[in-house]
Design a protein around this nucleic acid. Sequence first.
DNA 1: GTCTATATGGAGATAGAC
DNA 2: GTCTATCTCCATATAGAC
Lengths: 205, 205
Amino acid sequence: MSTEPPVSTAPTAPTRRTELLGIAAGLFAEKGFKNTTVRDIAEASGILSGSLYHHFDSKESMVDEILSTFQEELFAAYDAVLGSDVDARTKIDRAVRLSFEAIDQHPHEVAIFQNDAGYLGGFERFGYLAERNAQSRGVWVALLTEGVESGALRDDLDIELTYRFIRDTVWVAVKWYRPGGKHSHVEIADQYLTILLDGISTERP
Amino acid sequence: MSTEPPVSTAPTAPTRRTELLGIAAGLFAEKGFKNTTVRDIAEASGILSGSLYHHFDSKESMVDEILSTFQEELFAAYDAVLGSDVDARTKIDRAVRLSFEAIDQHPHEVAIFQNDAGYLGGFERFGYLAERNAQSRGVWVALLTEGVESGALRDDLDIELTYRFIRDTVWVAVKWYRPGGKHSHVEIADQYLTILLDGISTERP
DNA sequence: GTCTATATGGAGATAGAC
DNA sequence: GTCTATCTCCATATAGAC
């Protein structure tokens, strides 16, 4: 993670810095980190590329701040679900809904993570991305294990594979989900949870 | 699609051309198209970058030939499933297995398509990628619709969302599947089909 | 906080010798 | 079929004026 930006206690007044980060996030999400040039970001911001370096050290610093800020928020939410006092099935329901909600509210950040984490993870500076992945796996494996042990979930599940299927389906949705589109993020979560929990067949074997 | 390479009728003797394409495919899959330089490909092939242009017009030509060749094969297989004389549930089973098998046998090609189709699709030359996507959707929507109408699948399914969930889960597996790893592609398909058809819960509502 | 001007490096691609 | 040599463009980033 990078050096901290000025700490904001209040509900984030849109400073020039955050404004520029928002523009950069949109471009990174749309075209990919590598395919977005500093000049692209500057042009979209109505300034010249040199001026961006008054606000940020480098292009990498920008994506770093975008991702680390978002992940801090996301994982706080996961921890709340994991520690909540409800049954396993409800926790899984909440974790799934939380993820689709994150896609709805932070589509750029999720898209950047999905598309560029592999590339960025190759740099030491972004080592925290792999740590966050491991943390996410830990949450899901805990929830699924709890589900099997409590009898809510089938005991013939391969926890590791099940985790991967859920993670993949949920997060890749950022590639096609459009806020304000035909399906709300709540409807998508409803449909996915129905399928995940009970399957698409009319009858069980 | 690009101009055709020399047509091979026999079981593809590994020409220098296909050898180079294989090396390029591995690098594109691993690092992404944009992040792989022509010099990377040349070095991995034991030659210098200029020499590559004796075999190919451009870096784009290489990825074009890699993708179009693969997709031709893949969609022939889908068409065979779609036209086969079995019930809808069996067709879905076969289509899922076919996809995981494609990941097993052509991991580079699938990875390139997953990671770079968005970027490449922006060029006219790669317009066929979008067409193939539409074709894939057509196959799945047909299978799911047939399943609902025959009574094999629940009639409260949103076909469009269900298609997207299946497509995403199946193809993103290329990011973590490793041939010869802990789970075979058949085991992965088994587990996914179990969950997809019957869900992860012990009991239905 | 932005602009002007520019340094520096790396990318794709080409021409012709061997 | 490969190498040598090189062109050209575009990328990130910097220094200092306004």
